[in-house]
């Protein structure tokens, strides 16, 4: 599974962090970071993260 976040679109809401904390995090300046190739076992959480992104900036590939 591959995760792509459009960081131009991302506005650092952080909703994805709660849906999939193993994959997404906000640093102390509030900027998003993420694991681009998370384990397949996290698929449900990652899809949930993509759903709850207010900017729809998260894409799940494969």
């Amino acid at each position: 599974m591959r995760v792509v976040v459009d960081l131009e679109t991302c506005q650092d809401h952080g909703q994805c962090v709660f849906a999939a904390p193993e994959v997404f995090h906000l640093d102390e300046n509030g900027k998003l970071g993420y694991v681009p190739e998370p384990d397949e076992s996290l698929r449900d959480a990652v899809e949930e993260a993509a759903d709850v992104c207010p900017l729809q900036a998260i894409r799940v590939e494969d």
Partner: peptide, 13 residues
Amino acid sequence: GRARATAATARYR
């Protein structure tokens, strides 16, 4: 405020 405030708010979730 700025993004930093959003991140700080999230810590209370």
